[in-house]
Design a protein around this nucleic acid. Structure first.
Length: 724
RNA sequence: GGGUUCGUAGCUCAGUUGGUUAGAGCGUUCGGUUCACAUCCGAGAGGUCGGAGGUUCGAAUCCUCUCGAACCCACCA
């Protein structure tokens, strides 16, 4: 058989993938019996983080595919029941943002599209992206079990989500709160605490007169929502006022306001006295909660479009910044604010929407669903937070790199309740008691129709490991759960991993995975973060077309070290493309030797030792064994880059540069045909075992060559036995 | 305010529990080969491992301080 001189990845990759998929190799057999132990093999499960079905895969996806596929292929070859369960995420808010942009581009207004049609369009959009994505995963060589693929909007998954919602409700862990929420005026939805980020801004700090007080504030426009003035109880300056109602002159005329004492007030800041605006500030809201009996409740003065409402009198209808400017000017005019006292260089952090950067308006809403993170369930046991903390502290869940354990636990310390309501159309609708009532008793129609809400997408994906396995094949959950490794990006540790741990243990009683491996971000050439919604993604499929999936995968894993960001550059891929070519040509040489020198079928002999003719033979076999050991250890301990570099080095610089070169003279000097055959057989053996070690990293080229070997020890390399 | 990561060859980065002449890819210099390799092989140049101090027989690796870069968390108006 004549091989091309240069390796051409394009030709065969698709064919090989089909051979694998049609051969059923991706679908594990549940042959091992409990209790699972190392001697007989065991289930090894990875639940694929379902990519957001709102665009094409980016290079970051290629990284996770590579890392997870390495583990899966390794364990499959080792004889474990290796399940890699693929999926796709409808990605609620994320997809909504992408789709809104698409509408905007097309010059269409979301508000003018009937909801039913909008949802249909979004579903079409999502499903077509899902399709594209799945084919891209195939091109990257992902050996996942497509027969078990799940989508977050599958009926059975939604059912699980509803049942979890019900259980939480019955346990008193979910409540509909009249609570302060993070409101994004641009996206017209609330957001959870992890969906906001903080930006440092420089804004003027105003000192406004409040009767006998002077109060420092960045937001004078919220003064219409003030319900009290707070001072520190230890502050002697204001001692006499505490508990009293003071009369103050405001731009809307005279008013009375109560003075309260609260520990949270910093005497050093500003004047040591602070206005309390519970409807629009988290700290103030909490202050009010502590003084509920003394002062009036929150007064909302800003509406959901970010405009002042009727409580703002003449400023009603104005946008926040416009109103602020106007109010400041009017206050100066009325002598309520001294222009000279404005601190124009005041630096502070402002909460903004993580997607659009719009300033988040804390606002009071009464129809929002919250999950209690720190309270014990009615049926007994630990709070959601403590379930997760315990599991991590007990080492039921281990992190790689280890430092994330600390980060995880630290985050758990200061958790607030989780807002799971979103006011966007795209997502799993939150079951609404009122609408249920309506359908049951048609008489109740006076009730104001509540806007439909959907779950935070992380509420559903937070249940992914058990929700999927409970709805694939019968017995899957019992066999594959808890899963082995959760491999995902460090950037969604809080969004996703934390929620999976909490909900997973809460529902199933077991941590959903044993190991968490976190990779860093693949950044673009300028070290900028890539993201679909930003539109700066690099299409990994173009790279596959050009250089082959193996080169891309090897380049990614070569550059990766756990938890560290990596910069993507083409020369790394080209280097690995050369390596693929090296593998190809070494194989070409070995196969040629085998063809011309082979005299017997001695390579079927299990005892490779009796073929040794020279010191070189001995050494290469020793080096191979050493490399196998190291590579195995490195994969087991998640040091994939180390494993990749070791097998790379062995193959190129030990096998090719040293051993193959030696065999040339060795073969020439051999006395008998049999000796020559022996050498050829060692070449074949070392090549075959090397291909096995390389296969998790570079599956296509290794399988292609393996299929041509005369000394195959399995039907396909993908299921060939891993070297001891 | 708290925390984390990074600073190693011209560039991009590895270096797991401290141990002989500190590594890879790309680049670069010289030589060879085109008899598996639109190439490949051999040899070389290039690093006081951000800085200072300490622990140790021995530190890029551990400790303290310090400079520089990035990031995460946090309700200071």
């Amino acid at each position: 058989m004549e091989l091309e001189k240069a390796y051409n990845p394009k030709e065969k990759e698709g064919e090989i993938y089909q051979m694998w998929e049609k051969g059923g190799y991706f679908t594990p057999k549940k042959t091992h019996k409990k209790p699972f132990d190392k001697t007989q093999g065991r289930p090894f499960t990875i639940i694929m983080p379902p990519p957001n079905a709102n665009g094409a895969l980016h290079i970051g996806h290629a990284l996770f595919v590579t890392l997870q596929d390495i583990m899966i292929r390794y364990h499959r070859m080792k004889g474990d029941s290796a399940l890699w369960l693929p999926g796709a995420d409808h990605a609620g808010f994320e997809t909504q943002v992408v789709f809104d942009k698409k509408l905007e581009k097309e010059g269409r207004k979301k508000s003018e599209i009937p909801k039913e049609q909008l949802l249909k369009e979004m579903m079409d959009f999502t499903l077509s992206n899902k399709q594209i994505m799945e084919n891209q995963l195939r091109k990257l060589g992902a050996s996942c079990d497509w027969t078990r693929a799940k989508f977050t909007l599958d009926d059975d998954i939604v059912k699980v989500v509803y049942s979890t919602f019900e259980k939480l409700k019955q346990d008193g862990l979910i409540y509909k709160g009249n609570r302060l929420v993070n409101w994004c005026a641009k996206h017209q939805t609330t957001l959870s605490d992890v969906e906001i980020k903080y930006e440092e801004r420089t804004d003027p700090l105003y000192y406004i007169k409040y009767g006998p007080f002077k109060l420092a504030t960045v937001r004078p426009e919220t003064k219409f929502g003030d319900t009290a003035i707070a001072v520190n109880p230890k502050d002697n300056r204001y001692k006499n006022y505490v508990g009293a109602e003071v009369e103050v002159e405001t731009i809307l005329g005279k008013a009375k306001i109560k003075v309260i004492a609260d520990e949270s007030v910093d005497m050093e800041f500003g004047t040591g006295a602070v206005k309390v605006t519970p409807a629009h500030d988290f700290a103030d809201y909490e202050t009010w909660q502590r003084h509920k009996n003394e002062i009036p409740g929150p007064k909302i003065v800003i509406d959901k479009y970010g405009k002042m409402n009727e409580l703002a009198g003449p400023y009603a209808g104005m946008k926040i910044l416009e109103a602020r400017e106007k109010i400041v000017a009017d206050m100066i005019a009325k002598g309520l604010l001294d222009e000279k006292e404005i601190d124009k260089n005041y630096k502070h952090n402002v909460a903004v929407c993580y997607k659009c950067g719009t300033v988040i308006e804390p606002t009071l809403m009464d129809n929002q669903w919250f999950v209690k993170m720190t309270e014990k369930p009615a049926s007994g046991g630990l709070s959601l937070r403590d379930l997760a903390v315990e599991a991590v502290k007990n080492q039921e869940i281990k992190f790689t790199p280890q430092r994330f354990e600390k980060i995880f636990l630290q985050w758990m310390e200061n958790l607030r309740d989780w807002n799971i309501s979103r006011q966007i159309p795209w997502g799993i609708p939150i079951p609404d008691e009122k609408s249920k009532l309506k359908t049951q008793k048609s008489k109740i129609t006076t009730e104001e129709n509540e806007p439909e809400q959907v779950f935070d997408t992380w509420f559903s994906s937070g249940q992914w490991p058990f929700a999927t396995l409970q709805n694939t094949q019968k017995g899957d959950f019992e066999y594959f759960y808890p899963t082995s490794v959760m491999e995902t990006g460090a950037d969604i540790l809080f969004f996703w991993v934390a929620r999976m741990v909490m909900l997973g243990i809460y529902i199933t009683g077991k941590a959903p995975f044993k190991d968490v491996y976190l990779h860093g971000l693949v950044r673009d050439k300028d070290k900028q973060k890539m993201s679909k919604s930003k539109g700066n993604v690099v299409d990994p499929l173009g790279t596959v077309e050009q250089h082959g999936a193996d080169a891309l995968r090897m380049a990614l894993v070569f550059a990766n070290s756990p938890g560290q960001d990596i910069a993507f550059s083409e020369d790394k891929i080209i280097a690995q493309k050369r390596f693929a070519n090296k593998i190809w040509n070494a194989s070409r040489f070995v196969l040629q030797q085998a063809n011309t020198l082979q005299t017997s079928d001695v390579w079927k002999s299990p005892d490779i030792g009796c073929l040794i003719e020279s010191k070189a033979d001995e050494e290469i076999l020793k080096a191979l064994q050493e490399t196998s050991k190291e590579v195995t250890k490195d994969i087991e301990t998640f040091q994939f880059h180390e494993a990749a570099q070791k097998i790379y080095h062995f193959f190129w610089h030990t096998f090719c540069d040293v051993y193959i070169e030696q065999t040339k003279s060795q073969i020439a000097n051999c006395k008998s045909q049999n000796e020559k055959g022996n050498t050829a057989n060692i070449l074949l053996y070392v090549l075959r075992e090397s291909l096995k070690l390389l296969h998790p990293f570079m599956p296509f080229i290794t399988e292609q060559i393996y299929q041509m070997l005369p000394n195959k020890d399995a039907k396909a390399l993908i299921i060939a036995p891993w070297p001891e």
